[in-house]
Design a protein around this nucleic acid. Sequence first.
DNA 1: CTGAAAGCGCTAACAT
DNA 2: ATGTTAGCGCTTTCAG
Lengths: 362, 362
Amino acid sequence: MARARISDVAAVAGVSVTTVSLVMNDVESRISQETRQRVREAARAVGYAPSSVARGLRTQRTRTVGLISDQIATTPFAGRMLAGAQDAARDAGHLVYLLDTGGDAAIEREAIDALTAQQVDAMIYACMWHRVVDVPQGVLPKTVLLDCRPVNGGYRSVVPDDRAGGAAAVRELVAAGHRRIAYLDTDDPGPLASRLRHEGYLEALAEAGITADPALHVRGETSAHGGRAAAEALLDLPDDKRPTGIFCFNDRMAAGVYIAAHRRGLDIPRDLSVVGYDDQQLIAAEQDPPLTTVALPHYAMGRWAMEVALGVRAEGDEDATHLMECPVIRRDSVGPPPAQVAKPNRRRASHTERPPEAAPDR
Amino acid sequence: MARARISDVAAVAGVSVTTVSLVMNDVESRISQETRQRVREAARAVGYAPSSVARGLRTQRTRTVGLISDQIATTPFAGRMLAGAQDAARDAGHLVYLLDTGGDAAIEREAIDALTAQQVDAMIYACMWHRVVDVPQGVLPKTVLLDCRPVNGGYRSVVPDDRAGGAAAVRELVAAGHRRIAYLDTDDPGPLASRLRHEGYLEALAEAGITADPALHVRGETSAHGGRAAAEALLDLPDDKRPTGIFCFNDRMAAGVYIAAHRRGLDIPRDLSVVGYDDQQLIAAEQDPPLTTVALPHYAMGRWAMEVALGVRAEGDEDATHLMECPVIRRDSVGPPPAQVAKPNRRRASHTERPPEAAPDR
DNA sequence: CTGAAAGCGCTAACAT
DNA sequence: ATGTTAGCGCTTTCAG
C-alpha cells in the first residue's frame, strides 16, 4: 500500500487539501471545530503522515540540522554532547544528521556539501576537545561551534570554562587546608584546557595568598601511566617541598597518581589529596576512594549549541564565546593535609621492575 | 544570493534542464563530451548543487537512513558503532539521522514517525548492549537490528559472538597452563552476554578436559567495586581451590580484580592471571600491567548493519542473526600459573575500613 | 544527441 | 469558513 497523500485525506473528509493542510499544521484561523475533527479522523483512517520532503521543498525549511564533528568514535564524551544536542533538537521538532569527519578535511568538505544539498536549517560544528579551529568554508553563516572556538571569530561558540574549573578544583584543596598544591599537567599543548586550567590553578593559589612554586607544576603524558610517572617525581621531592594535594589535568592522570600513591603505601586522602578533571564515569567514580573531580558540562553544551543554532535561545552576539560552568563533583579523594607529611619510602621508585616477593596485605 | 537552481545552470550553459540533469547525474546515454564540459563549467560558475529535497520528492528516494538507538549517551561503545555505520553510509552516499530515545517508548514512537515522514530509505535499530528487543511498530520492514536480536524474529540482526569470545578468553588461560579458572560474572541477568560468555567458558573448559567447579563461577555488581568484592571471595578460597586465572565478564570488573590482587600483594600475572572483556581503552590499556581482554567488534557491527540496511551487502536471509567475531587482545595480564599458589594474607579483607598506618612500599 | 512538459506532495496567496 | 491553483526544484518519459 502506497503512502497516503494529503489529497486522499481531503477526499475522505470531503474537504479541500487546503483545509487538510491547515488543520494538520494547526493554523489558528478559520476552520470550524467540526471540520477539524472530521479531517483528523480521515487522516487517522487513511494513516496519513505529511511528507517532510514535499513540505521542505515547498517551504524551503527542512527542520533538520547537521552536526559535523571531528571525532565521535574515540571519546567517551561524545555521547553526552550528542545527547544534549539531540534532546534540544527534538524539543524544537528538528531531526539531526550526524556527520563524523575523523578530522579529515576532504571528508569535511563532502559533509558540508551534503548538508547543503540537504538544505539543513542549521549547522553545528563540534570538536571533542576544547580547541581553536579554522572553520571550513561553506558552512552556514550562523553555524555554532561546540567545544571549540573559531580562530578568527565570526561564529558563536560554547566551551567549558576551564579556567574557572581549574580554580574551583584548586579551591577544594585550599579549603581543606592544603598549601603545597601541585598541578599535574598534560604534556600536550594542543587543548586550550591545559593552559586555562593552569591559569585557574594560579588564580586560586593567588587568592589564597599562596605563592606558586614552579617545581609543583609538572607535566606528563596524558594517561594513567603518564600521571603515575609525574606523580612519582612529585612524591620524590623532599618533605618540605612535597605537595600534599595534587590537581590533575584529567581523571586518567589522576588514576596514575592513585597508583603511584598506593605503591608507596600512601593513603588517599589521608596522606595525599587529589582532584581530577573530566568526571569520566569509568574512571573517577570507580577509583578507591572515589575521585573528587571537575565535570565537563557536555550535555549542557550540546543543548546550548543546538538551542542557539535553532534560534530557540536568543543569543544576542553573533560572535561570542559562551563559557559553560564546570561543576566540581565532590567524592572522597580530598581531605585535610597530614599533620606532618607522611614519609614515603625513599628508595628510587621503579616503574617496571618488581620486587621478588609479594608484600604483605597493607 | 539565493541558491542556484538547475535552470540557472541550463541558461548559462545554453542547454535545457534535461541536459543539465543528465550530466549532473552521470547518466551514460547521449550528451556529447563537449556539452558535458560546458554544463560542468556552468554549474561550477553559478555554484550549483542539486537540491536533495527536490530530488527526494521526485524520486521518492532520499538517500538518508535513520539510526534509532536506546542510548548513545551512557556508553563508551556507542562511538565505534556509530562510526562504523557512519562510514558505511558515507561510502554509499547516504546521510544518517541519529535518534536517541533513551529507551523511552513514547520518544521511540515519535522518532519512528519523524523518520517515516522524512522518508528515509532505511532504518537501523540499535542497542548499546547485546540484548533481545521487541521491535516497535512502524519501523521499515527491512530494518536491521544492531547489537540486539528481535524477540520474535522477522529482522536481520548483528550481534557479537559472545559465546566464542568467552571461549577464546578462557582458552588464553588454558593455553598458559591454568586449570583452576574462575568466571567472574555480572549479577545482572539482562544482557545476553552474561549467559553466552558463560557457555563459552564452559565449552573451553570442557575441550581442555577440565571439570568446571561451580564454586569458581561467582557473580558481582558490574563495576570495579563489584569485581573487587567477588575477587576477594575467590582469593579467600583455600589454596587448593583458589583459581590461578580469572575470566571477568568485563574490563571494569577486571579492574576490581586488579585492586583486590594488589591489595594482597599479589602480582599480576605472576601470582594471578586475568582476562577481561570489552577492551575499553580507558580501562584495559591503562591497567598495570595492561589487561588482556576480548574486544567487542563495535565498528564492524555498525558497518555491517549499515551495509545490509542499504543493500550494499547482500545478506540472503531476511531473518537471520549475524554473529560477529570478538578478537582477543593480548596484553600482559596472563602468564603461567604460579608453581605453587602464592599465599595471600589470610586476614578477612575489608573493603572500607582502612588500617591506621600506611604500609611500607612493597 | 537534445528539449518540452508532467508531476512528486505540499503550502500559501488569492478567490469565493 | 472553505476552495483553486501556482509553484518549490528536480527527474523522466516522450518527442523530436
